[in-house]
């Protein structure tokens, strides 16, 4: 019996030696993939920068401020697209922030019993899951026919304001802004709701205990306490709006102009990429890469700010 015990002990020892290497290898492999996730982001930045370099060299920062897209003479500038991206995102935020925060309040307060509230939360989440291209299809065949008469009315009554000084012809910046607002609304609602729900019950009770009404409590205690979380959600939504492609491409008209009128057709950086990339070559590809890099940079800044804000909220809790 004694030798066999020795035997099994030595086997154990061997096994633990082998398994120690297996452990180390396993941790190493997972660590490699963990770090690789972070490297993907850097790879995107690097690869797009390198391919954009010829265009950066040729056009410099003037690329952002000039309006030309001329494959024949190989001269490119993306001002209309940068402008369109900013304007459509701004319109989207203008509509979606108040409604989204309103939805978040509606879903974080106890207006309804949880049995009715939970399906509504689910439906709002579902809105975020509808593919962009479906919103685009819906935009073309449902929203544009609905909006064009309204746009015409605005043009006829308020046409002297530059904002409405073009005749709406169907697709346009305002349609894109509205579709974007629908698409980012669930993001704002969901993140704001999380921030609102995270406000400690004690603060709510303190305000009620002092004789505040529900809405006085919301405006003076709950919203201020949840403010940075809500701003984080709005920033994330802004990042999404700036990068959103398909729905915008399908309803904006893809005109290479920067018009002050929201009823006019326009384009965004992402719609430019969607329309031109597959058939481009040479310096045009590089210029598109440059445009993609600008879009990447813009969304990166917005997303990092959002992430830092949402994080600071999480740390406080």
């Amino acid at each position: 019996m004694v030798p066999s015990t020795n035997d099994s002990q030595s086997m154990n020892w061997h096994r633990s030696e082998a398994s120690r290497w297996l452990d180390k290898g396993f941790i190493g492999v997972t660590g490699f993939f963990g770090i690789a996730v972070a490297l993907v982001l850097l790879a995107i930045a690097l690869r797009v920068s390198i391919d954009a370099f010829p265009a950066i060299q040729k056009f410099g920062l003037g690329f952002i401020t000039t309006s030309r897209w001329n494959p024949v003479e190989n001269l490119y500038g993306a001002w209309p697209q940068v402008y369109g991206t900013i304007v459509t995102s701004f319109i989207a935020l203008l509509i979606a922030v108040p409604i989204g925060v309103g939805v978040a309040l509606f879903l974080s307060e106890d207006f309804l019993s949880p049995r009715i509230q939970r399906p509504i939360v689910f439906l709002v989440e579902l809105l975020a899951a509808i593919p962009s291209v479906v919103f685009g299809l819906w935009g073309i065949f449902v929203l544009i026919p609905l909006l064009t008469p309204i746009g015409k009315w605005f043009h006829e009554t308020l046409g002297w304001i530059p904002l409405f000084n073009t005749v709406p012809v169907g697709p346009g910046i305002y349609v894109a802004g509205l579709v974007l607002s629908i698409m980012i609304l669930p993001i704002i609602a969901a993140i704001s709701r999380d921030a609102l729900v995270a406000v400690p019950l004690e603060l709510r009770q303190a305000a009620y205990g002092l004789g505040a009404t529900r809405w006085e409590t919301i405006f003076q205690v709950i919203l201020p306490a949840a403010f940075s979380g809500i701003v984080g959600g709005v920033m994330l939504a802004l990042g999404r709006a700036m990068g959103e492609t398909m729905a915008v491409t399908m309803v904006i008209g893809n005109a290479n102009v920067a018009s002050p009128s929201i009823l006019a057709q326009g384009s965004t950086v992402s719609s430019l990429l969607a329309n031109q990339f597959a058939e481009a070559s040479g310096l045009q590809i590089s210029s598109l890469m440059y445009a993609a890099l600008i879009l990447f940079g813009l969304t990166l800044i917005v997303n990092i700010l959002a992430e830092l804000l949402v994080r600071s909220v999480r740390l406080k809790l």
């Binding site: 996730v37 993907v40 982001l41 790879a43 995107i44 690869r47 797009v48 994330l236 990042g239 999404r240 700036m242 990068g243 959103e244 492609t245 992402s270 990429l273 969607a274 990339f277 598109l288 890469m289 993609a292 879009l295 990447f296 969304t299 990166l300 917005v302 997303n303 990092i304 959002a306 992430e307």
Partner: peptide, 14 residues
């Protein structure tokens, strides 16, 4: 988290 915010069109470009 930042990667999840990169526009899908930019990922396409990549």
């Amino acid at each position: 988290n930042v990667l999840s915010g990169v526009p899908s069109i930019v990922v396409g470009v990549f």
